[in-house]
Design a protein around this nucleic acid. Structure first.
Length: 322
DNA sequence: AAAACATCCAACCGCTTTCCA
DNA sequence: ATGGAAAGCGGTTGGATGTTT
């Protein structure tokens, strides 16, 4: 100590700014297969040009399987207000009482909505004026179970699953033994088994939830039931958003070779196969699948045997676009 | 139609805490 | 007991988007 803190990473060598879908997939797949024992080493092992801190944040705030998206319910808001009275800006602590919500998200909600609402008239229960565009009913979580008395709330009965019927279809292709806890810092660092997409089908959230309520109706019962927002109207833009550089990265030798040489490589491959199945499923959900052509060996098929499913997935996306 | 302004939120920054040799 | 490394946490920022003029 006293010598100054070494930077967590060389800022010249890491990518910053918004995450691309390709990076997200890369990170998700890696954590699925290997967990996150060491955030600092993770980016290199996963072939990401990000600093470990950034990866951690992205995972915790956005990509974690148990992150609940969507508007906060009335009950959640009241819980935040209540807990904030008690604990102040202890966002992490507050988040531990709100299953699926991250400290960052709660902090944002507080700063953008709740604080303002409380300031002028401190009318906590009257929400009709200050939240005009956010219909608080959009969150499908069960409001009655938002407040927990136990910090170590077990999520197995968490209503999050209810809001993600996609779970039922996807279910994790493997037995899910990982017990996910709520707090942003309490996810097991052991492998996160194939269950991430529970509610993150709109990964990257590159397609904003514009007029989602309207669209929900138009999308019909299917998307409603699935509880997902699909960028159906913007296939091209969607694929355009993919970061080609990262795709090259996937193919490069920069990815730690030892990653492929470990003793559990076979297990990894099996998991990757399961991942590939998921990507296929996701593709169907996104409405991106096309009728098979006889002479057409898809990129996925080419890659899925011995290449990372992320790569395969995106390769097919590009193929389609061309 | 477009410029100005407001709002939102993902991501970053840097300090603190925890862990471990 | 000590110091360095890594993770955790809360504050802040900046770009994207929405709204108003």
């Amino acid at each position: 100590m006293g010598k100054g803190r070494a930077p967590c990473c060389d800022k010249n060598e890491v990518k910053r700014g918004p995450w691309s879908p390709a990076e997200d997939f890369r990170l998700i797949t890696f954590i699925q297969n290997h967990g996150h024992d060491n955030w600092r080493a993770l980016p290199k092992q996963a072939g990401l040009l990000r600093c470990g801190k950034s990866c951690r944040l992205r995972w915790i705030n956005y990509l974690r399987p148990d992150v609940k998206r969507g508007n906060f319910t009335q009950d959640e808001e009241e819980t935040i207000i209540k807990l904030h009275k008690t604990w102040g800006n202890k966002w992490s602590k507050i988040a531990s009482r709100l299953p699926g919500r991250t400290d960052n998200e709660i902090k944002n909600v507080w700063n953008t909505h709740l604080k303002k609402r409380l300031l002028p008239t401190s009318k906590v229960s009257d929400s009709s004026e200050d939240e005009p565009k956010e219909s608080r009913t959009t969150s499908s979580s069960s409001s009655s179970s938002v407040l927990f008395s136990n910090e170590n709330q077990n999520l197995e009965t968490e209503p999050l699953n209810k809001s993600n019927p996609i779970n039922d279809n996807l279910v994790c292709s493997k037995q899910q033994t990982t017990s996910t806890s709520i707090s942003s810092n309490s996810i097991s660092s052991s492998q996160v088994e194939g269950c991430w997409p529970q509610n993150r089908v709109d990964f990257g959230e590159e397609v904003k939830e514009k007029k989602e309520n309207d669209d929900d109706e138009e999308m019909g019962s299917k998307s409603n039931n699935m509880g997902i927002k699909i960028p159906l109207e913007s296939d091209i833009e969607f694929w355009d958003m993919l970061d080609l550089d990262n795709i090259h990265l996937f193919e490069s030798d920069e990815v730690d070779q030892s990653f492929c040489e470990g003793s559990n490589f076979v297990v990894q491959k099996n998991q990757e196969f399961e991942n590939a199945k998921w990507f296929k499923y996701l593709e169907n959900e996104l409405g991106l699948n096309r009728p098979p052509e006889a002479d057409d060996i898809t990129a996925t098929e080419r890659f899925s045997v011995d290449v990372d499913p992320c790569m395969a997935y995106f390769a097919e996306g590009f193929t389609r676009q061309l």
